[in-house]
Amino acid sequence: MEVKVKYELEFPINSSPQLLYQYISTPSGLSEWFADNVNSRGEIFTFIWEDTEERARLASRKSGEKVKFRWIDEGDKDTDYFFELKIMEDEITKDVSLLVTDFAPEDELGEAAQLWENQVADLKHVIGSV
């Protein structure tokens, strides 16, 4: 199995943490920017992109702050890989940013980061933070 490395990206977003949380924690919010369609049954989320379907377990959530999804393999087992979306707010300036933690093969880090940049650009467009 291919080894993936962990990486983090931070994106400034002009939004309230409460509004942003709706877009990162609910199937309807996620399907507006992250995937073509998102369904959930309990803590299992199914992410659909064109011909691809991936399942992840909602591993943890902290209301208004972060969500963490752990990918599930073909045998319905949790993998070592996850992605986490964390909302950070500067206490003084009140600037809000989204911290993305994800994994990718080392030789695909640039592509993976570009994909997140595109996804987050969609998110900013959806919430009017352009």
Rank of each mutant, 00 (worst) to 15 (best):
108 E>A: 12
80 D>I: 02
48 I>W: 00
28 S>H: 13
44 I>L: 12
14 N>C: 00
54 E>T: 06
65 E>Q: 15
38 V>C: 10
50 E>Y: 11
8 E>M: 12
88 M>Y: 01
106 E>I: 15
47 F>V: 05
3 V>T: 14
69 F>W: 08
120 V>D: 01
121 A>K: 13
116 W>E: 05
130 V>L: 07
65 E>D: 14
79 T>E: 04
55 R>I: 03
72 I>G: 04
38 V>D: 02
91 E>Y: 12
63 S>W: 10
40 S>M: 12
126 V>W: 06
109 L>W: 04
37 N>D: 10
28 S>I: 09
10 E>D: 07
23 Y>H: 09
31 S>N: 13
21 Y>R: 04
127 I>A: 01
93 T>M: 06
73 D>N: 15
113 A>Q: 10
40 S>C: 14
114 Q>V: 03
89 E>C: 09
128 G>S: 00
87 I>M: 05
100 V>S: 04
55 R>G: 02
98 L>T: 05
107 D>Y: 12
108 E>L: 13
51 D>T: 13
51 D>N: 14
92 I>H: 08
29 G>K: 04
71 W>K: 08
87 I>A: 07
99 L>Y: 02
85 L>I: 08
48 I>A: 06
114 Q>I: 01
12 P>G: 00
127 I>Q: 00
16 S>V: 06
93 T>W: 10
57 R>A: 09
84 E>C: 13
95 D>T: 08
28 S>E: 15
93 T>S: 15
44 I>P: 07
99 L>N: 04
6 K>C: 12
87 I>E: 01
